[in-house]
Amino acid sequence: MKQNKTTRKILVADDDPVIRDMMADILDFEGYAISVARNGYEALQLLRGEEDFLIFLDIMMPGMSGKEVCAVLAAEPELRKRHIIVLMSAMDNLAEASSLKVDAILQKPFLVEDLLSLLEPYMR
């Protein structure tokens, strides 16, 4: 298992357990420290904690959506600055996704290679 390249942790926020588990499994194998959230609330709670995150934020989730999380972060610049946001969106939400101030967008479905290469610059 690889060592953490940075102190930054990875947070996967997705309501779909299959996707959530899969991403966790993959990133864990790549040597990243992983946290998971099932919706926007859980994600925000973690983001407000001590650690800095690179968050894979699903745009559509029950309860609080990724979009709503983005709105909260936009209102709190201090909080926003600490984290790197990668918005996960399906093709049909891409237009909406690109209107949000995020660091990167990962289009679903994705290949593992794309996921990792997107991740690399931020985690080096």
């Binding site: 996707i19 093709m91 049909d92 593992v112």
Partner: peptide, 18 residues
């Protein structure tokens, strides 16, 4: 449906890639 199909597809693709 595309959304629904995407989830298992992502899972299959992700795990096989892993």
């Amino acid at each position: 449906a595309s959304h629904e199909l995407r989830t298992p597809l992502s899972a299959i693709s992700g795990y096989s890639s892993l």
